[in-house]
């Protein structure tokens, strides 16, 4: 129910996303994301669960921000929209193969994936776009 990876017409399939120069220039859905939905996806433990690893002052009402990754305060000023999209799609292609940050819109996953998740991405193209829109508000 929370696995939103069924491909909607007009969206770019995970295998077809091209990351060039740490950037994905086109929206994965062809449309702009919704920042307030992105904020929810960010905080939701079953979706982005981004707070597991990142502090984010915009969500200070939530307890326990992780510190495995850098604080995302100002991320929207540090990175451009195409760069944030690339980071969201596959952080391993941006930072390094060894990064702990999961690839949220990629089928390059680990071994023995849980059976019901095989062939599915962690987030949908729409959720990625929502997150990108949200991250851009973190100035």
């Amino acid at each position: 129910m929370l696995i939103a990876s069924t491909l909607v017409a007009g969206t770019v399939a995970p295998g077809d996303v091209k990351i060039e120069n740490i950037a994905v220039s086109e929206s994965l859905t062809g449309m702009a994301g919704n920042a307030s939905e992105g904020r929810k996806t960010f905080a939701n433990r079953k979706l982005g669960n981004c707070l597991a690893c990142h502090a984010n002052a915009d969500l200070s009402e939530q307890l326990f921000h992780g510190e495995v990754g850098p604080s995302l305060d100002g991320a929207g000023a540090r990175w451009s929209e195409p760069q944030l999209r690339a980071i969201m799609v596959n952080a391993k292609a941006v930072f390094s193969d060894r990064t702990i940050m999961p690839a949220f819109y990629s089928l390059e996953v680990g071994e023995n994936v849980r059976k019901d998740l095989i062939g599915k991405t962690i987030l949908s193209a729409e959720q990625i776009e929502d997150l990108v829109a949200y991250l851009l508000t973190l100035k």
Binding site: V68, K92, P102, E111, N112, V113, L117, I122
Partner: peptide, 18 residues
Amino acid sequence: YRRTGQLNLSCATCHEDN
């Protein structure tokens, strides 16, 4: 050291690197 699952993590990712 084997990375497993949709999240693509190994024991080492959490307990050695972090």
